[in-house]
Each structure stands twice: as C-alpha cells, then as structure tokens.
Design a protein around this nucleic acid. Sequence first.
DNA 1: CATTTACTTTATTGATCGTTCAAGAAAGGA
DNA 2: TCCTTTCTTGAACGATCAATAAAGTAAATG
Lengths: 201, 201
Amino acid sequence: MGRKSEARKKIIDTARELFWKNGYGATGVAQILSHAGIGSGSFYWFFKSKEDLLVAVLEQYLELLDSMIAAPAFKKSTDPIERIFLILEGYRQILEEYDFQLGCPIGNIALELGDKYENVREMTIKNFENWRNMIKKCLHDASNSFPPNTDFDAMTVFILTTMEGAMMQARAHKDISYFDDSIVQLRVYFNSLLTKKEFDS
Amino acid sequence: MGRKSEARKKIIDTARELFWKNGYGATGVAQILSHAGIGSGSFYWFFKSKEDLLVAVLEQYLELLDSMIAAPAFKKSTDPIERIFLILEGYRQILEEYDFQLGCPIGNIALELGDKYENVREMTIKNFENWRNMIKKCLHDASNSFPPNTDFDAMTVFILTTMEGAMMQARAHKDISYFDDSIVQLRVYFNSLLTKKEFDS
DNA sequence: CATTTACTTTATTGATCGTTCAAGAAAGGA
DNA sequence: TCCTTTCTTGAACGATCAATAAAGTAAATG
C-alpha cells in the first residue's frame, strides 16, 4: 500500500461493507484482508483486534451520517417534516437497491452484539444519538407546528423505532410493503398531532 | 438420555436459550451439547445440521407464542386493545428481568441471518405472521372502535414495528425509557384513531 | 433366543477462527 | 551513510468450528 496509510482506510471501508452485509461474527478477519488485498501483519499493525476494527467502523459511521443520509435528503426539500420522511425514504432505497440484503448497519450490530463488548455498545449508542439528533433538529425547526406540550425527545425515539422495526420486517419478508405500511402509519401519527395543533390555535 | 427421546427436546430447549441470549452464530454446537449433557453423536442422530436445529427451535417458538405471550396477557384483561398493550408489557418484562440481555428472539434471528438460509427465513416469516395474527384478532374484536376505513393489516404491522424498534433501542441503551417512550407514542397513535371514531359517529 | 431398531459414546476429521511473530522493505532525518 | 520509524510480508500458532465415523448399549420385535 501507499506511503501514507491508505491501508488503514481500505481495511475500514472493506470491513464496513462486509460487516453490513454479513454481520460482524460471520465476517472473518481473513475474508476482510483478502478482499482488501492486505496481509494479516499489516492489519495488526493498525488494529489491536477485530473488535478494535469494529469500533473504527462505527466511528466512521458517525462521520458518514451527514454526507450519506442527511445531505441527500435535505437537498430534496427544505420543509423540516418532509425532510424526516425523505430520510426514511433513503433507507427504503437501500432495501430495494440491495434486494433486502442490507438493513440498518447500526441496528444490526446492536442486536448481534448486545452488550458483549462495552466499547462497541458505547459506539452504537453514539450512532443512535447522532441519528436522533439529526431528526431532533428537524422537529425543532417545525416545533411551532405541534402542540406546545409535545415531547420531542419521545417523538424522535419513536421515529427511530419505526425505522428500525420497518426495515426489519421488510427485510425478513423481502417485501417493501411492510416498510411502506409502517411509514404510512407514522404519517397518521404525525398528522394527528399536526391537525390537533390546528384545532388548538 | 431416557428411552423415548427426551434428548431431542433437551437439545432444542437448550439451544433456544443460548440462541436467544448469544445469537445463532456465536453459539457453538459443542456449547449447546455440554450444557445439555449430550454427545455430538446423539445430536447428529436427531438433527442433520446446526441449521436444522435452528429450524426446530423456530418451530417451537410457533407453539410457545400462545402459552408464553398471549395467555399471560389475555388473563389480565378482556379488553382487546388493552390486551395488545399487555402483550407489549410482557416484552418489557423480559427486558427488565434479564437486564436487557434478551430481546425479541425472532427479530434477533431475522437480523442476524437475513436471507442466508431460505428455510430459516421461512420460519421467521411464519413466526412474524403468527405474532401478527395474535394482534389482528384483538383488533378485530375492537373493530367497531375504529373508523370504518381503517387498514387493520397495516396497523398490525405497525404494532410489530414498534415492538421491535422499541426493544432494540432499550437494549442498546440498557434503559427501559426508550421502550416506554415508544409505547406511549403508540398510545398517542391509537388514541387519535379512537377519538376520530367518536367524532364520526 | 436372535435380530432389528433406536440411541449413546468418544475420538477424530479438516477447515477456519483470531492472533502472533520474525524478518524485511521503504522512506526520512542526521 | 547509518539509524530510526513506519509499514509489509507470509508462515505459523493453538483454539475452536461444524460434522463424521465406528463401536457399543439397551430395548423392542419376531
């Protein structure tokens, strides 16, 4: 590899791809290295363990959220509520584009590893927080469309809940309608709050 | 083991427990057998592979749903909508009782294995269908509390979506409030439909 | 009693797991 | 030029993986 450590990045990128598609446990270090064209000696120069690599992958996801998820959605609309549903549509596209082989990479790790490694769990929490902050900003921008007593934190949790549950079912059934049905019901939930505001004001 | 195959059941029970707590991939056949006190020769007499065992475990979950999930909830109330939320409370108890180490066993498998084994995917689908049928019956019993155009199938999917997403987040954070927040929002969703009915009638 | 069927026991297979190690190559600074 | 730092190479390690083979036991069947 090149003289200023493209190798480390190459390993992370390859691992991210394979962890996402096949899971952490099912992806061997040897498999990552053969895909990346790098020897095991180099790997353990950059990372002290496979677990350490997973943490690096999860750190990268923190940085990727804006460019890969938020920016594409925000470009399509300026309306804060519409932006939320455009973000969800981005995940819908992932399901369809990769024929339901890919879900939410964070959710996958969260369920697979649980609390087996504390530093991994910390990173999944940070990723969830990062995601929810993205949503919370949108809700804040639309805060005067909602009743004054609205619990925006709980709402944000509920949106992530819907996304994760919707992706899980669509993936299991290999049928996008399970995703779409869930999102439609989330719209129902939203609309009930928005119209309630109209009554009050 | 005894003369009429308690061994097979012992293996399934042990595997169910370990798969649930540690996942399918992270649970070794040898680990299952040492917990069950059974040799590998016996194992491969009853099952042709580890994958085959997983299918048997998922078959058992189909039978266990009534006695472990539905019955305890239905005993506490006869109101169909309250029963739905009592079922969700049952999962809440699992989270707390086992200190967030256990989630939804079907959801775990669905995300871990994806579509790696077709017969496993078929069984997870059957389990999801089984679960949704339990909910759908409740909704049917309360059908005249909802507006006439209500999409009960989509509603049912949405309830499972909420359960899965809520458990995932609570488990990742080791904090029950993520579960509770999601359920409260599901109540908001329900109430908006129920009150809408009142307006219409 | 003889034979078959049902199941157990344990040793062992080859593959793959994550990880280590000793040796060296390439570049920079002195 | 020589030394140091940075990174690469590839073989090897012991452990564990799912799965098999072969021999043996016990009950049922005829």
